[in-house]
Every structure is written in C-alpha cells, then in structure tokens.
Amino acid sequence: MFRVFIFLFLLGSLSFANKDLDEGEYWFKNRARNSKNDHADSLIVEKMIHAYKRALQDSTAEEKAAERLLYAYYFKGCYVIDYQNHDARLQLFAISKDFGEKMHAKYPKNHTISSLYAQNLSLWSQEYGALQAVKEGIAKKIRDLSTEAENWQFLGRAHQLLPYIPIILNWPDKDLADKYLTRAHKQDPADLNTILFLAELRLDQNRYKEALKLVEDGLNRGIRNTYTVEDKRSRWKLKDLKEKIKKAMK
C-alpha cells in the first residue's frame, strides 16, 4: 500500500510539474496581452516566470522550462523594466547569467540555451560595464557560445559592435560581421532584428540604397503574431534608422 501511495504521489507531482510548464507556455504565448506599444504587462510576465520556475522541479520538464525561463528573463529585462532602471536590469541579468551558466553546463548541446545564455550575458555586460566585462573575458565567452550554437545573428552582432582593441580584444572584424549577419538573414528573413542590424551595417559601409531597401523590406513585413511586442520595438527602430539613412543620402 505504501509503495502504491508513493507511486501515486510521484505521478501526481509529475502531472503538477507538467501543468506548471503548460501554464508557463500559456503565458509565454500570451506575453503581449495588455501590452502598451513595445512594453509588456509586468503581471503577465511574472506569471510566466513563476510558472517556469515551478516547472524546473520536474526533471522531465527542466530543459524546456530552462529555455523558456531564459527567454522570459530576457523579455522582462528588455520589455518590462525601464531602460533607465540600471539597478533592476543589472540584478535581473545577473540572475539570468548565473542560471544560464548552470543550464548550459547541464545541457551543453542545447543551442537554444546556449544562444539565450549568450544574449543575457551580453545584456548583463552592458549594465555591469562593457570595458570591464571585456577585460574579464565576457566578450570571448559570448562569441564562443554564439559559435557553438551557430547563432549567426549574435555572432555577427558581436563582430559589428565590439571595438578592435589590440591585445585586449583583437578578434572583432567588420567583414565577419557582414558574413554572419548576411547568413542570419538568409536563414530567417522574417527576423526584424537581423534586418535592423544588417541595415545598420550597410549604413556604416555607406551602402545607403541597400540599407534603405532592407529597412523598407522589414517594415513591409509587418508584425509577427508570435513576436508582437518584440517586433513593435524593432519597427520603431527601423523607422528611426530609415530617417538616418535618408539624411545620409542627401
């Protein structure tokens, strides 16, 4: 009888944990609900985060919950917390950085976890202090994680934004930024962030017509149902970039 009770208890726990993952997925799919332009509702995002945290307790759901929780941390830091709230962003991305490191060590072949770990690590370094992060090897870590995950967008963006600093940071290369961002765009033409980054690179290269075409193509794509808040943010950045390109063309 005791064994039957233990079995039923474990079965119930497994079911409960899976229900937590389902609840997290529900809020993940509805993370744009009650959003205002490119800012999400904090209550909904917190429900999503807490559901995924509970789901982590089930070993059969942990890997998927870890993927979603890393994205939820990114989403909260970028689309809930005000950009000017340095302390809150630093605290959140520090939590995400530590969690990403732990999950990457446990699931090293999961490219989604590697990519999101790299992304949150990058966001943490911006709040922590970019130069200090570079000195501590964070830039190299982001590059290696992106390469490992074959995330060409992140890898291209790293080469695009990071400065070449002899001895300290001697690997960033604008030609490689072009190579990887072009590859990322071919891989996923609907990703507005890749379009934005590639258009910014074309502007820096004084290839104005190509930059303008990329921006217009991106704006013509509209907003994806699965990335409502994210694409709204990308669209206003594209519109702002369009004005910069037109000004440069005069």
Rank of each mutant, 00 (worst) to 15 (best):
A149Q: 15
L201Y: 09
T194P: 10
K179T: 15
F99V: 04
L219W: 11
H159P: 07
A61R: 09
E243H: 08
A61S: 15
E23A: 09
N34R: 07
I95P: 02
K140I: 11
F9D: 02
L116Y: 13
A139V: 12
R33S: 07
D178Q: 10
D22R: 03
A32V: 00
F28I: 08
V80Y: 00
L238E: 03
R33W: 00
S59F: 06
E25S: 07
R31L: 04
D58N: 15
E25V: 13
D231M: 09
L131E: 06
P108N: 10
H159V: 06
H111R: 12
L11C: 07
K237E: 12
D173P: 05
L121G: 09
L241C: 04
V229Y: 02
Y107V: 07
N85E: 14
E210G: 07
Q132A: 10
H111L: 03
A94Q: 14
L176Y: 12
E210W: 01
R224I: 03
I245F: 09
G24C: 09
H104K: 11
L161W: 05
A72L: 08
K179L: 15
W171F: 14
F154Q: 13
T112A: 05
T226P: 01
A66R: 06
F154H: 08
Y227K: 02
K102A: 15
T60L: 11
Y128V: 13
K239G: 01
I113Y: 10
Y208D: 06
R54D: 11
D144P: 10
S96F: 05
R233P: 03
Y208I: 02
D38W: 12
K76S: 00
Q153F: 14
G222T: 08
F9C: 13
D41M: 00
E101R: 12
A130C: 00
Q57D: 07
Y52S: 01
Y73P: 04
A94P: 08
A149Y: 15
V134C: 02
A211W: 03
M48W: 08
D98W: 02
R224T: 02
R233L: 09
K140G: 04
V229F: 01
G12E: 00
R143T: 08
D240F: 09
E63L: 10
S115C: 04
H159D: 06
L116T: 06
A55D: 01
K244F: 01
K186A: 12
D204Q: 14
Q57M: 01
S42A: 12
D231P: 04
G24T: 14
D178Y: 11
A149D: 15
E210N: 10
R68I: 00
N193L: 10
D204K: 14
C78I: 10
K247W: 03
Q153N: 13
L11N: 01
P172F: 07
F16M: 01
D173F: 06
R143I: 11
K179R: 13
D82C: 05
L121H: 05
D82F: 13
Y128G: 11
E25C: 02
Y117C: 09
Y107N: 04
H104L: 06
L131W: 08
L90V: 03
R235P: 01
A199S: 13
L8D: 02
T147E: 14
K141A: 12
W171S: 05
E67G: 02
A199D: 03
L241G: 04
D240E: 12
K237V: 03
K141W: 06
K97E: 09
G24Q: 06
L203W: 04
E101D: 13
L176M: 12
L176G: 05
W171Q: 09
L116P: 04
K76I: 00
N170R: 12
